[in-house]
Amino acid sequence: MLQELNNDNFDTTLGQVPGVYAVRFWAEWCGPCRVMSPIFKDVARDMQDRAHFGEVDIDQAPELAGRFGVQSIPTVVLFKDGQVIDRMTGAAPKPNVLRFINNHLD
């Protein structure tokens, strides 16, 4: 399941979810973000039993982008038990995204 994250639910959501949580930072006007959207949704569906997935629209929650140092989009930030453990910037093919997340699973 892919959850929409914002200023109101971000800390609560990530604080309640143990394990790996992949968060895609994106914007509607961003071409590479539109390319990455179906890829990220496919990965979320394929890995829903091993990791959690969410998205932050930086136009709706610019504070979150600033807080996590997101300077270009799309960026996927990986959290483990609420802490940032890695990030991937730019559009990438599905195998690369799967490998990126799998590398951080126990």
Rank of each mutant, 00 (worst) to 15 (best):
Trp29Ser: 06
Ile73Glu: 13
Gln16Thr: 12
Met47Phe: 02
Pro93Trp: 10
Val23Asn: 05
Glu4Phe: 10
Asp42Ile: 00
Ile39Ser: 06
Gly90Leu: 11
Val20Thr: 00
Asn102Cys: 08
Val43Ile: 11
Val43Pro: 00
Val77Glu: 12
Met36Pro: 00
Lys41Met: 07
Thr12Lys: 14
Asp81Cys: 14
Asp8Gly: 10
Val76Pro: 02
Gly69Tyr: 12
Val77Cys: 13
Pro32Ala: 14
Asp59Met: 04
Asn9Val: 08
Asn96Tyr: 08
Phe25Ser: 05
Arg87Cys: 07
Asp106Cys: 01
Leu78Asp: 06
Glu55Lys: 05
His104Val: 02
His104Thr: 00
Gln71Arg: 15
Ser37Ile: 04
Ile58Lys: 06
Val97Asn: 02
Asn7Trp: 01
Val76Leu: 12
Gly15His: 09
Arg50Tyr: 04
Leu14Val: 04
Asp81Gln: 14
Ala92Cys: 08
Asn6Asp: 14
Ile58Ala: 04
Pro62Ala: 00
Thr75Asn: 07
Leu5Ser: 06
Arg34Val: 03
Pro32Thr: 13
Ile101Met: 03
Leu98Ala: 13
Gln71Pro: 00
Arg67Ala: 05
Ala51Thr: 00
Gln16Tyr: 01
Val70Lys: 03
Ala91Met: 09
Asp8His: 11
Val20Phe: 03
Arg34Thr: 01
Gly54His: 06
Asp49Gln: 13
Tyr21Ala: 13
Val43His: 01
Ala44Glu: 01
Gly31Phe: 06
Thr75His: 03
Leu14Pro: 01
Pro32His: 14
Tyr21Leu: 15
Glu4Trp: 05
Leu64Pro: 02
Ala22Ser: 05
Pro74Thr: 09
Val84Tyr: 13
Asn102Trp: 03
Asn96Thr: 10
Gly90Ala: 12
His104Arg: 04
His104Asn: 10
Ala61Cys: 06
Met88Gly: 11
Met88Trp: 07
Ile73His: 13
Gly19Asp: 07
Asn9Phe: 13
Arg45Gln: 13
Gln71His: 11
Asn103Ala: 15
Val20Lys: 02
Leu64Lys: 03
Asp46Met: 03
Val17Glu: 05
Asp46Val: 00
Val97Tyr: 11
Ala22Phe: 03
Asp46Ala: 14
Asp46Asn: 12
Val43Gln: 02
Ala44Thr: 03
Thr75Ala: 05
Asn102Gln: 15
Asp57Phe: 07
Val97Ser: 02
Phe10Arg: 12
Asn6Ser: 15
Gly54Tyr: 05
Ala27Ser: 13
Ser72Gly: 15
Val77Asp: 11
Cys30Ile: 12
Ala91Gln: 11
Phe10Glu: 07
Ala27Pro: 15
Gln83Phe: 09
Leu5Ala: 09
Met1His: 08
Asp8Asn: 13
Leu14Phe: 01
Asp49Glu: 15
Asp81Pro: 04
Ser72Gln: 15
Asn9Met: 10
Leu105Ala: 03
Arg45Glu: 15
Thr12Asn: 14
Asp59Phe: 08
His104Phe: 09
Pro32Arg: 15
Glu28Val: 08
Gly19Ser: 01
Trp26Lys: 11
Val20Met: 07
